[in-house]
Design a protein around this nucleic acid. Structure first.
Length: 542
RNA sequence: GGCCUUGUGGUCAAGCGGUUAAGACGGCGCCCUCUCACGGCGCAAUCCCGGGUUCGAUUCCCGGCAAGGUCACCA
């Protein structure tokens, strides 16, 4: 068979000599240990935790080594395209401090552009043509129906499904048959003529999994679709070669197609990049666990965290704890250090899929939020409220002085003890609510109406806004004693039968009367912020 | 089903032939305390199973089992 002629018929026209691509996209001029990594999403615009997980890994590996992180868009499947998706991806990752050095819609060094695969058609086709000329690729005229029929019979016979060996019908088409099909105008795809044998096991060193065994590929996979666009596998080989990727960190769902990629790199005569397959995030689902799924699990979406008002750094810290097993210990020892100072190691990446643990994230969130200054917290909350808050909540930011006071109180900023009352911005807004509006009573008084009224009345009678915390509490104690409540907690615990209750119960009445809640931060401070007029009004109406 | 990966408390995990098997989250209890939150102290809870190798296996080997992934002209 004259492959040269066939190639010309299949992909007519002049293509640049292959060496010109090598020259056009030369090896990068980087320090010896620098790694080039990438993120290669398809333009669906949906970016999720799994993406972020991989993004952080790739970003750290590139930037810690003085290398490059770039963004490539895998838009070979038109069905997946969504407008504005690329910007959405960039924005979403930027929220977590992940910046690309170059890539689609980013620019940077243009040497390795374009970053949209659809714009790289010429390169792919040149190589496909070359493969055809070498007899390593061939046209396949099988229809979708034929292919699914094939799959069915294979399944029935309990054989491995796919296009390989004796089932690769078009592989051994005669020259005459091929031209006959072509002349008839039948659509075709180009398949790789695989030379592999699944009996052969290859030892492969995965950067995160370590030594693994892979089975040689024998599938004649499609490399060029009937629309003239390459499949992912082929584009991956070409692009990661010419964009000079040194290491590919991707989800372990790709492990199964690794044999294909290895064969492709070899067939093209390219040096393979290193690969690291990281585990996927799992979720407990009844008895079993499964991969977090886009349809069932809202917490997979990054948007979920933004809406709820999780602090971006908190999500990132959580990702780090899952990504590198020694991160948590390091962070405990270096609480003041920048996240980027952490010595990220590919070898420290987990080998098994971790269950996504919201409790853990929440704990981290509390801690991260408690590290903020009042100003930083105000800034964060304001940005959140503007986008997601209610009208009332937006109003909290009108009186900045008061807001900062509230925050200082809520978080104990400036004081001896930090409070950790909330994990998200939306919780924080709820937490601060009673400072800004009179909220409906959430907790009920645990004393009868008469006692309550008497206590509130007497409290107001002696209340003085100018009292300091100690003087204030002394009065509360006095009030407690006058109404038959214990003033000393120890004594109360020893002899509860002697009293109607304790100062704690009296304080609770005052607390509910002013805030509507039985549990709040320090009452005296709250009263100081609210102001005398407001306190009196609230208590009188309680 | 074939192929691949993984298997230490409820969760994330350290561990690399000899340990009282770290630590964190969660749970429980106590202390602090006007409530809550914070903080401090403490408790319970783990090496998937079966064979080897070895004086000794969580650790090495083999075999099961279980879980996950993947088998497209999607990525």
């Amino acid at each position: 068979m004259n492959y040269k002629l066939l190639a010309e018929r299949l992909l007519p026209g002049e293509y640049p000599a292959l060496e010109t691509f090598e020259e056009k996209y030369p090896p990068r001029n980087l320090p010896p240990k620098a790694e080039v990594t990438r993120l290669a999403p398809s333009p669906t615009g949906f970016i999720h935790l799994g993406n972020l997980f991989a993004a952080i890994a790739n970003e750290r590996i590139a930037h810690r080594s003085g290398g490059v992180l770039y963004l490539r868009i895998e838009d070979t499947d038109l069905k997946r395209k969504v407008d504005g998706a690329v910007e959405a991806v960039i924005k979403a990752l930027d929220y977590f401090d992940i910046r690309f050095d170059e890539g689609a819609e980013i620019g940077g060094d243009e040497t390795y552009a374009p970053w949209y695969q659809r714009q790289r058609a010429e390169i792919y086709r040149a190589y496909v043509k070359h493969l055809i000329e070498e007899g390593r690729a061939y046209p396949c005229f099988c229809t979708e129906e034929q292919l699914s029929a094939l799959r069915e019979t294979q399944t029935e016979k309990k054989e491995i499904t796919g296009y390989y060996g004796k089932y690769a019908r078009c592989r051994d088409l005669s020259e005459a048959e091929i031209y006959e099909n072509l002349d008839a105008g039948k659509p075709f795809v180009i398949r790789l003529r695989s030379l592999g044998n699944p009996e052969n096991k290859i030892k492969f060193r995965d950067a995160v999994k370590g030594e693994i065994t892979v089975t040689e590929n024998d599938q004649d996979v499609v490399i060029l679709k009937s629309d003239g666009i390459p499949t992912y596998h082929f584009a991956h080989a070409i692009d990661d070669h010419f964009m000079r990727t040194t290491i590919v960190i991707r989800g372990e769902e790709w492990l199964a197609s690794l044999p294909i990629h290895l064969e492709l790199f070899d067939a093209l005569g390219f040096q393979r990049p290193r690969y690291g397959h990281n585990c996927s995030l799992m979720k407990q689902d009844g008895e079993t666990r499964r991969k977090l799924s886009k349809r069932k699990d809202p917490e997979l979406s990054l948007e979920f965290y933004r809406k709820a008002g999780y602090f971006p750094r908190a999500v990132k810290v959580y990702m780090f704890t899952l990504l590198n097993s020694n991160f948590e210990e390091w962070y405990l020892k270096n609480p003041e250090a920048e996240l980027n100072e952490f010595p990220y190691k590919v070898e420290k990446m987990g080998k098994s899929g971790a269950l996504f643990d919201l409790d853990k994230l929440n704990d981290i969130s509390k801690n991260e939020l408690s590290r903020l200054s009042a100003e930083e917290m105000a800034h964060f909350l304001k940005a959140w409220a503007e986008e997601f808050g209610t009208e009332a909540e937006k109003g909290y930011f009108a009186d900045e002085e008061k807001l900062l006071k509230v925050l200082a109180l809520c978080m104990g900023i400036g004081g001896k003890k930090r409070r950790k009352d909330f994990t998200t911005a939306s919780q924080a807004m709820k937490f601060m609510e009673y400072f800004f509006t009179r909220t409906p009573r959430e907790d009920e008084y645990r004393v009868d109406e008469e006692t309550k009224n008497a206590i509130l009345h007497d409290f107001l009678a002696t209340y003085s806004y100018g009292d300091d915390a100690q003087a204030w509490f002394a009065k509360v104690k006095e009030l407690a004693g006058a109404h038959g409540f214990a003033t000393d907690m120890k004594d109360y615990k020893a002899n509860p039968q002697n009293y109607k209750g304790s100062v704690a119960d009296v304080a609770e009445i005052l607390r509910i009367a002013t805030t509507g809640k039985a549990n709040t931060p320090d009452l005296w401070t709250i009263m100081q912020i609210l102001g005398e007029k407001e306190i009196r009004e609230r208590i009188e109406n309680a």
